[in-house]
Computed example of a mutant assay.
Amino acid sequence: MTITAAIARTPNADFEVAQVELDQPRADEILVRIHGVGLCHTDIAIRDRRIPLGMPAVLGHEGSGIVEAVGADVTKVKPGDHVVLSFNSCGTCVMCAQHKPVYCRNFGTLNFSGTRADGSHTLHCNGEPLHSFYSQSSFAEYSLAYEGNVVKIPDDVPVELMGPVACGIQTGAGAVMRSLACRPGSSIVILGGGSVGMSAAMAAAVQGCTTIVVSEPVAERRALALELGATHVIDPLNEPLTEALRAIIPLGIDYALDTTARQDVILAALDALAPQGTLGLIGVPASMDAAIPFTLTQLMGSGLSIRGIHTGDSDPDTFIPQLIELYRQGRFPLDKLMKTYRLEDINQAVHDQHDGKVIKAVLVTGAVRTDNG
């Protein structure tokens, strides 16, 4: 079938919006009509070759939409189901058996190989093969996905806005609710007020944290953080981070969650931790070999923990429905982070998100529009 998609061809250059050919679903594949897809920092990092993937490619890994057709072997969903597309996992390895699919032993092959398992491509442009991403390539009108990365969601939520739950939102929320498992009455600082950081702030409120600090240089984002549950905000350009945090809680913060991947920010947060405090790292670094020098005596003397976190340690089949239920209850207003753009306007969305004009850009297809678009 012929569909519209956004193709990444050149680092640091605009996406090419073009007509491409998408295969019909095989026996184990699911055809989804994409209604919305979040624009994630990881998509841009891959386009710019900071994370390796074959090119040219159709990116997009925060897709949501309605199932249009399923292969003969598919039993998890049926045509008409509303779904979110997250990462793929094998379902059979030792990590999947422990309900830790984000650490699936086959994660790299399933999500970053750019092809099907047999090496074939699902997408072509004028006969040229296009690499796929995260078993979905949802910067497009339609997507081929698999049972491993499809999560059914209720029909009474705006399906076009649910895609970001697949990555950015479950990364931030999962870091707080699953990875760090912040205890009620505890304190946390969230470094960065993008969609991941804001999701973490909302999750901290859900967890019952009593001191929720967001460090963010953009004034509008600091104001939104307070609206979403933060008790304090810090402008890191106006005051030293460690001193500002110590002024709020002199004995130290229980948890710090970094979304910036900046060495100076991470070390400043480490200095503000309470004894036996935990630092979680979820920011995507500028280079794959980025390293930060920690002082071992500081870690041992105060019993500090440093925790690397991948996609919030999420099990999408259980965690995505949990987050959507919180949204339905009004306890997790994820739509306040979003602004919609047409898929054809992807390059404007990239520039606006980079410039801080929008926290989470969501690309919608065809006639699908929302009130904030």
Rank of each mutant, 00 (worst) to 15 (best):
G36K: 13
T92G: 07
A219H: 13
G174P: 01
N12Q: 14
A140F: 11
D345H: 05
L180S: 01
P321N: 15
F133W: 06
L180T: 07
V37W: 05
V233T: 15
A225T: 08
M338S: 09
V70M: 02
N149W: 02
P129T: 14
G301P: 06
G373Y: 08
G127L: 13
V58M: 08
I44E: 03
V94L: 12
H351S: 14
S187Y: 14
V218H: 10
L226C: 02
I306W: 05
K100C: 11
I346M: 11
P79F: 04
Y146R: 12
N238W: 06
S302N: 14
L257W: 09
V150E: 01
A268E: 07
H41D: 01
S287D: 07
V67Q: 01
S138D: 05
E325T: 15
I248S: 00
R331F: 09
V32Y: 10
L296F: 11
T2H: 14
P154E: 13
V165F: 14
G127F: 14
A291V: 11
D271Y: 08
C96L: 14
A274V: 02
P184C: 15
I309Q: 00
H310M: 02
N126V: 11
F294I: 14
V214Y: 01
G65R: 14
T295P: 01
D355G: 12
T231S: 06
G108P: 05
